[in-house]
Design a protein around this nucleic acid. Structure first.
Lengths: 116, 116
DNA sequence: TGCCTCGTACGATACTCACCGTACTACGAG
DNA sequence: CTCGTAGTACGGTGAGTATCGTACGAGGCA
């Protein structure tokens, strides 16, 4: 039997409903930024449990919801797992170059702080 | 007599102290985003009172402080006025392209919502 | 059927933040 | 010196939020 996508539905903002303000707010949390960066590197979907965040499951759920409701992520259930993917196309259509420059900025800052 | 810069000093983060997280947080407020956008268009320094924000003076002071402490703005007293300038060079050095893509994103969103 | 895992829901807590009003300081102009 | 303007400091308020723990639901697997 094929692993069917569950019927449980999740509310996502449509492309036109995504707001820059909400996206920037979502990205201004280090926990959420880390999720977005790993997701960008992975170039595919990752389950919530893939991420090893230093917070409890409840808090993890909260952060993923913020990312989804701001339009940064799309989420879909697959069995018990919830798969997460970056909404690259929607973000690129609305805010060209934004996601890439934010990811680049995060990478540069990490390098800069590591080198001392 | 030349209008001398006052001796009153304001604390600014050094370039190396600027954090992406704080910058994104500063820009995730519509009031502050508006200030940054006007400042970017003006291509120079503007006093706090130049901005006609729909909040009281106290709140305006608060927002400018957030922008200064996050490293987005530099501020200097000139007489009774406090002049504000974007820290373009510092931001461009740390996060190349970030400021421009955020400004572009804000402009696009404004156009998009206006056209309906 | 029963168990395990993944993730949710809910309530509680502590903190941050956007906002206000009032009282105050700093500076320039008359 | 006096007055007006620009902005600050401070205290308070209500909303949001990052966090936790515990209890629960959904789905795969034995």
């Amino acid at each position: 039997m094929t692993t069917a996508t569950s019927s449980r539905e999740l509310a996502h903002p449509a492309r036109e409903e995504i707001r820059l303000e909400s996206v920037l707010h979502a990205l201004s949390d280090p926990m959420r930024m880390q999720v977005v960066r790993e997701l960008a590197q992975a170039e595919g979907e990752l389950s919530c449990s893939y991420f090893d965040l230093p917070v409890t499951k409840s808090t993890t759920t909260h952060h993923f919801r913020v990312l989804r409701e701001s339009g940064v992520l799309q989420q879909v259930y697959r069995g018990t797992a919830k798969m997460n993917g970056l909404r690259r196309d929607d973000l690129a259509a609305l805010f060209p170059g934004l996601l890439d420059s934010v990811l680049d900025a995060a990478a540069r800052e990490e390098r800069r702080l590591a080198d001392g």
